[in-house]
Design a protein around this nucleic acid. Sequence first.
DNA 1: AATTATAGTGACCAAACGGTCACTTGTCAA
DNA 2: TTGACAAGTGACCGTTTGGTCACTATAATT
Lengths: 197, 197
Amino acid sequence: MENNTKSKILDEALVMFAENGYKGTNLRDLASRLGLSKSALYKHYSSKDAIWNALLDRMEAYYAEHFGSADNLPNQPKSMEELYILTMKMVDFTLNDARIILTRKLLLTEQFHDERVCSLATKHFMVGTKNIFANIFKKMMNDGILKNDDPEMLAFIYTAPVTSLIQISTREPDKKGEVLEQIETFVKYFIATYAVT
Amino acid sequence: MENNTKSKILDEALVMFAENGYKGTNLRDLASRLGLSKSALYKHYSSKDAIWNALLDRMEAYYAEHFGSADNLPNQPKSMEELYILTMKMVDFTLNDARIILTRKLLLTEQFHDERVCSLATKHFMVGTKNIFANIFKKMMNDGILKNDDPEMLAFIYTAPVTSLIQISTREPDKKGEVLEQIETFVKYFIATYAVT
DNA sequence: AATTATAGTGACCAAACGGTCACTTGTCAA
DNA sequence: TTGACAAGTGACCGTTTGGTCACTATAATT
């Protein structure tokens, strides 16, 4: 399968671009990690830049699929307990999925060198999760579970601290356990503050 | 003055490292921007790596000076009004000072490639400002201005959203005005929520 | 069996890079 | 006046890099 090789190239390119940046990644290493010679890469992609852009295409497609429409939204929590569980499930995934971690590294290191990365970074670190929780909170307010307030603002003050803690874990993986505890503490604090009593 | 040239090299190195990363910065460009030949750089620093480390030394010294001791803390706010003014003054500086902006870019792009950058990044984006406001909030609680709560937690949920908005402005400078508005809105929301009535 | 397309190889190239070196210039002390 | 030293220059070097090309092997099509 040619297609298989093409996607394996992107898999390994993600690892290398994330670890060493675009400039710090060289095609000889990339090829040898795949058990290929460098010139074989050129049978699948016309240049280093073409690999880079194909990888970004795939990332954009992934985001369009998972965050683009309202269909893929997580199950609407019916209680604060369920909000807690949903949140921690999302955090756990985000904190441990290898591909997401690499993607986050790539977005951070290359956000100033590529416009597409720039817009993806804002989506990933800001508006993506914020919008999801804004919708969730709006319904929870209608259901009388969550205190009435501006759902956009509440989603922002809920997701921003979590996102900032996740960035610490991305930067210093040793602190993952500590970060997880802090997220738990924060989420519990938020729920205690905004639950309808 | 030799010292002057040495520090001018670091000034320009900060610009180039921040814009293009360590790997993406080459000494020919750096020298020519300073009106020097490349070999002249080697009269002041023994290698590219030496320039890099001298720059990090200066950054660490800067942080130790401005965030290291309790002496350099800003004036303790005596009212929520003063907290608002202090916060917006700090935000304005952080959002507009060229050197801080470049430093932030450098921290973000190189945080995974250098241990010193990694620890500076956590200081800059997290613990630095959080600790400052934790101290401020503790006193404000004692003064009966701020609702009694965990000052650490409150400082965290106060600074994390602001920091995340500042990162957007760093990534997309066009959005600076918009970001400033959002920060104002958030700060007012926070004050309205936690002011002692 | 002959043809053709695909995947892969290794040698090679030009450009860019960090770094070195012999040399020049200017300044200041003895 | 001379000697020493710091600052700067341009030519040069070895290495690494992205990219090309002629060639081979394999498998499917005719």
